[in-house]
Nucleic acid binder design. Structure first.
Length: 262
DNA sequence: TATTCCCTGTGC
DNA sequence: GCACAGGGAATA
């Protein structure tokens, strides 16, 4: 299930399958995906070749020889499944890309919230997206500047992809714990000390999780959860031992330690 | 800035 | 039944 580490791994799967291959057919099976990419438009992909698969935040970008770009966002429950010619599709297949070697890349998505779009050459790919966490442009100063006008709680600001690209609900909470920042603190009330800790924490939390995911997924294993706070309500804080709290912010859960995050 | 909606599935 | 799920755009 996709937060950034899963998307990064999935992009690697797509890259291995698709780069250098020509698309021979595409089926968009669910109406939710067809709204953005109707069959008539999807047909434009046939005969085009995939030159590269990249990632910006949680969006995967298939760069095509025509100059068009196929963008895929998994949202909550999307994933790639690879199927050889003739193999049965998974029950929640929402779209199927077939290549000239017979291999199919299947978008498997129980909730069908994934978004697939075809972007014309030169058009903006992911408008408004902030820097990725590993981008050198993502610094305490740049983060401070973006947050300066935002009075919303820092946890909600971190989920805004214009602030940092690729941070989701789990790792926003994990990074705030690591940086010892209260998720309820107004975003514009972080000074240089906390900004510095937060940028370092976001980088390290995502990098570690991505390496961890890669190790497991590449062997076909489920990655064991080893979160510091996420989904650990009532359990002891790994730093101070007090009980992890769960609150609701922006209609989603936030987990944190009220004692050592301020 | 807060709420609602898109979809389906799971667990209580 | 109902609450909730790792996302994000569209509303009010």
């Amino acid at each position: 299930m996709p937060e950034l580490p899963e998307v990064a791994f999935a992009a690697g799967v797509a890259r291995a399958v698709a780069v250098g291959r020509t698309i021979t057919s595409i089926q968009v099976l669910h109406h939710a995906q067809r709204r953005v990419l109707p069959a008539r438009r999807a047909r434009l992909l046939v005969g085009d070749r995939v030159d590269a698969v990249e990632r910006r935040g949680k969006t995967q970008l298939f760069r095509l020889t025509s100059g068009r770009v196929l963008t895929v966002h998994f949202r909550m429950t999307g994933d790639w499944v690879v199927r050889a010619a003739g193999e049965a599709l998974p029950p929640r297949a929402r779209a199927v890309l077939a290549f000239d070697d017979g291999v199919r890349l299947v978008l498997d998505d129980s909730r069908a919230l994934s978004v697939i779009a075809l972007v014309e050459p030169g058009a903006s790919l992911v408008p408004g997206l902030g820097p990725d966490a590993d981008d050198p442009d993502f610094t305490p100063a740049s983060l401070g500047a973006v947050l300066a006008t935002r009075r919303i709680p820092i946890k909600l600001a971190l989920l805004d992809q214009r602030v940092v690209a690729g941070l989701g609900n789990i790792y926003a909470a994990e990074a705030l714990w690591s940086a010892k920042i209260d998720p309820r603190r107004p975003a514009n009330r972080l000074r240089s000390l906390r900004l510095k800790r937060l940028v370092a924490a976001i980088r390290s939390v995502l990098a570690k999780a991505t390496r961890h995911a890669e190790r497991y997924y590449s062997r076909g294993l489920a990655a064991p959860n080893r979160f510091a706070v996420y989904d650990r309500e009532g359990e002891p804080c790994r730093r101070c031992g007090s009980r992890i709290k769960r609150i609701v912010q922006g209609a989603r859960s936030t987990y944190f330690c009220a004692k050592c995050q301020s």
